[in-house]
Design a binder for these strands. Structure first.
Lengths: 109, 109
DNA sequence: AAGTAATATTGCAATATTACGATTAAGGGA
DNA sequence: TCCCTTAATCGTAATATTGCAATATTACTT
């Protein structure tokens, strides 16, 4: 036991959970806000900004990246992380669709 | 280590993470859909519907309830779980506000 | 080629989550 | 009162997550 049973859930439910997991940690909420807010998409300062160690930030970035929410020019000394706006908005759609569908089907509305 | 460092994050970031955690498991995504879809808000069948054991479902319900997303008449033999629509929509607002703010501040839009 | 700065990876410890069997508590009905 | 049904709680095992020190990698610079 301990591992999530995936076989019993629909693809949509699993996808929702995967995206939600990105935001299920305050550090990642913070990191995404910061990445989006920087005009020049400067990285590295995330470590100073958020207040966690470099390896930990790198780990969180991987989680966000695995969900497809990052887009960056990974060349040069300074890696440039940017928000993948298309994917991000696609995810926002998914959330809103789920939220609206859930509320709409509710009995006590 | 292993525990999330809360002191370094803002209250908004922590709140976002807490709500996101509710949807960070496909079983809870499924449970919320089911609870909302039932006119009579019948419980118990969640166990049959989702396909996890009764204690596991009960545990997931606690997580959802801790976030304030449930509202129910907990009297009688059959406990009646309902969606707390007000809180749910409030949470939807929080997500949308965060999403919109993040995208709006983005450099590569 | 050697040095340097920036980020990723590895390894590990601490804690959290997921899942379920067994048990317990709370009501309703005989 | 005594069962029966329903759901919460306890205990525990398996797995995942979080965090960091140490190390490796990458790419620019000199």
């Amino acid at each position: 036991m301990g591992a999530t049973k995936l076989s019993i859930h629909t693809q949509e439910q699993i996808e929702m959970a995967q995206f939600a997991k990105v935001f299920a940690h305050p550090a990642r909420v913070s990191i995404l806000q910061y990445i989006a807010s920087q005009d020049s998409c400067i990285c590295g300062d995330i470590v100073d900004k958020v207040g966690l160690s470099q390896p930990t930030i790198s780990q969180h970035l991987q989680v966000i990246n695995a969900a497809g929410l990052l887009k960056g020019t990974f060349k040069g000394k300074t890696i440039c992380y940017c928000l993948n706006v298309e994917k991000f908005q696609q995810m926002q759609e998914l959330f809103n669709s789920y939220f609206n569908k859930t509320v709409a089907s509710c009995c006590n509305i």
